[in-house]
């Protein structure tokens, strides 16, 4: 197992390197210039470029950037003068993570419950209701759900706040809006996965042992149904946790979502790279965690090595 993880880590680092390289050059191919403002004179522009080291040849800038990256320094924003990318991420990520974790938690809990319910009562009304919810969640973009929720509960009914992040009641609407898609996804995955599991022989064995319905579902069905969801969780966690532009903007949550969009619009090269690198690290880590989780959830997936070792059980 440790060897496996080490290998995966090395590949992960490499992947990140390729990612950063590509983005480094790609973003500079975008037409325009971060310092171009109608009022900024040419001399000032030249000085700004010199200040940020952008007057040096591109390759030199690239290696300088990599060097800084190894020290953990993502550089300084070109637009937010004086602010380091690190401190921007450090300040905004907790909000995105908070929002994301709550949404993920809600999606997981509700999704698993709805999926289980739908599978247990397959073909009946509850099943159709759950599937309907899932279809709506998957088809409706999060900004529509977010706007609808805000309109109904915050503006018309005035029972919940319309934005900001100052307490539990502030989290309700954005978390629900953000969780919808993931919830729908998990519901459908859980439903189909569990439907397969329900008809397996070992479930009959479990029932024949005299276990209660709940025990059969909880101990025997869920663990075996959950694997497809674990697969999907990796990229999903990365996406949800690193901020979503729309929900954060709509509910005035000071997370990192807006930087993904605005840094490209403003051609803030270091910010774009910083965001990309951060997201990349997150994604790669999340996938690594998922791989490890596999091994824990389903012992059959022994991560290749140990299977050959001890096949000594042929006594009969």
């Amino acid at each position: 197992m440790p060897k496996y993880i080490l290998k995966r880590c090395i590949i992960a680092v490499f992947t990140l390197l390729v990612l950063i390289t590509i983005i480094f050059f790609l973003v500079r191919l975008l037409p325009g210039d971060p310092f171009n403002d109608p009022k900024v004179t040419d001399e000032v522009r030249a000085r700004l470029e010199a200040y940020y080291g952008m007057d040096k040849p591109l390759i030199q800038q690239y290696f300088a950037y990599l060097g800084n990256l190894l020290k953990g320094d993502f550089g300084v924003s070109l637009i937010y003068t004086g602010r380091s990318v690190n401190s921007t991420i450090a300040q905004t990520f907790p909000y995105s993570a908070d929002l994301g974790l709550r949404a993920l938690g809600l999606a997981l809990v509700v999704g698993l419950i709805l999926g289980t319910l739908a599978a247990q009562k397959a073909g009946r009304v509850i099943d159709y209701v759950c599937v309907l919810v899932a279809i709506i969640g998957v088809s409706m973009p999060d900004f529509i759900i977010g706007a609808l929720l805000k309109l109904i509960f915050a503006i018309k009914l005035r029972v919940l706040p319309a934005g900001l992040w100052n307490g539990f009641s502030y989290t309700i609407l954005p978390v629900v809006a953000l969780s919808f898609y993931t919830l729908a996804l998990i519901t459908r995955l859980m439903r189909s996965s569990m439907l397969e599991v329900i008809h397996q022989d070992y479930i009959l064995t479990a029932k024949a042992k005299g276990l209660s319905n709940f025990q059969v579902i909880w101990r025997h069905q869920i663990r075996n149904s959950i694997l497809p969801i674990v697969t999907v969780m990796g990229p999903l966690v990365a996406a949800v946790l690193t901020g979503t532009f729309v929900i954060e903007s709509m509910y005035a949550i000071p997370g990192m979502g807006k930087f993904y969009v605005e840094s490209v619009h403003d051609l803030d090269y270091t910010m774009v790279l910083g965001m990309t690198a951060f997201y990349g690290i997150f994604l790669v880590s999340a996938n690594l965690v998922v791989d490890i989780l596999y091994g824990i959830v389903d012992p059959r997936i022994k991560l290749a090595e140990s299977k050959q070792k001890a096949d000594d059980g042929e006594e009969g």
């Binding site: 397996q200 022989d201 663990r223 075996n224 389903d298």
Partner: peptide, 8 residues
């Protein structure tokens, strides 16, 4: 072969 829970 299929009557036992593979993850327990």
């Amino acid at each position: 072969m299929t009557s036992l829970n593979p993850t327990m």
